[in-house]
C-alpha cells in the first residue's frame, strides 16, 4: 500500500500512467531535439533509491498541504533537500536535511565539479525536483541539461522537456499518487 493510500485509509491502489500528456506544459517551451523521456513513477523512485548522493530541489509551489506532505515524506527518507525560492518557510520546522538555496545559483554550482555541496560533503549524482514555478524550473535546469553531466529527473506535475526524465502533465490527484509511488520505492 502506498503512503497516499495509507493517508487516505484506502486499501486499493489506483493504476496511474504518468507518461501521458508528455508535451511541454507551456506550449512554446520546445527547447530542441532532446527532450525528457516520459517515465512512470517507479523509474525515478528506483533511481533515487539507487543514487549515492541524490538532491531533491523544491520551490515555492509546495505550499499545497498534499504536496508538502510528500516533500516531508521524501525528506524523511534522508534525501537532502535544496529548498529554493521561499519554500524553506514550509520546511524549516520539519526536521529535514533542508537547505535554502537560490535556484539560479544552485544550477551554477551543480555544473561546477569543485562545488562542495550544500553540506560540504561533495557534489551530487542525481537531481530530482518538483514544486518550482514551472517556467523558472524549466529554464534553470537547461543549464544542467547542457553544461553538466548530472542526471535530472522531474517528478513535477508538469512535463519538463529539459530534464532527462519527466512525468507528463498530470492532474493533481494523479500527481499526488505518482509522488507516493516514487516514495514507495525508497528505503524506509
Amino acid at each position: 500500500m502506498t503512503p497516499k493510500a495509507q493517508v487516505m485509509g484506502q486499501n486499493e491502489e489506483k493504476v496511474i500512467d504518468t507518461t501521458r500528456q508528455a508535451v511541454p506544459f507551456n506550449t512554446g517551451n520546445i527547447p530542441g531535439p532532446k527532450m525528457a523521456r516520459a517515465v512512470m513513477p517507479a523509474v525515478p523512485g528506483k533511481m533515487l533509491a539507487k543514487a549515492k548522493r541524490p538532491l531533491l530541489i523544491v520551490g515555492s509551489e509546495i505550499d499545497d498541504p498534499d504536496v508538502l506532505a510528500r516533500v516531508v515524506m521524501l525528506g524523511k527518507t534522508g534525501i537532502q533537500i535544496a529548498s529554493v525560492g521561499d519554500s524553506y518557510k514550509y520546511l524549516g520546522d520539519k526536521g529535514l536535511d533542508a537547505h535554502y538555496m537560490n535556484m539560479h545559483a544552485l544550477m551554477s554550482y551543480i555544473c561546477d565539479p569543485q562545488w562542495p555541496g550544500l553540506d560540504g560533503k561533495g557534489g551530487y549524482d542525481l537531481v530530482v525536483f518538483f514544486g518550482i514555478t514551472y517556467y523558472y524550473a524549466s529554464q534553470a535546469i537547461s543549464a544542467l541539461k547542457n553544461f553538466s553531466k548530472i542526471k535530472v529527473i522531474s517528478i513535477d506535475k508538469y512535463y519538463h522537456p529539459n530534464a532527462d526524465m519527466s512525468f507528463g502533465n498530470l492532474k493533481k490527484d494523479v500527481f499526488i499518487e505518482a509522488l507516493d509511488e516514487v516514495i514507495e520505492q525508497l528505503p524506509k
Partner: peptide, 24 residues
C-alpha cells in the same frame, strides 16, 4: 561566472543550420 540557461538548444542563424548544440 556567466551562467547560461538556453531557451533553445539549436542555432539557426545561418544556412549551415539548424545545428543541434545540445550538451554544448
Amino acid at each position: 561566472n556567466p551562467v547560461y540557461t538556453p531557451t533553445g538548444d539549436t542555432c539557426d542563424y545561418c544556412t549551415y543550420g539548424k545545428c543541434d548544440l545540445t550538451g554544448n
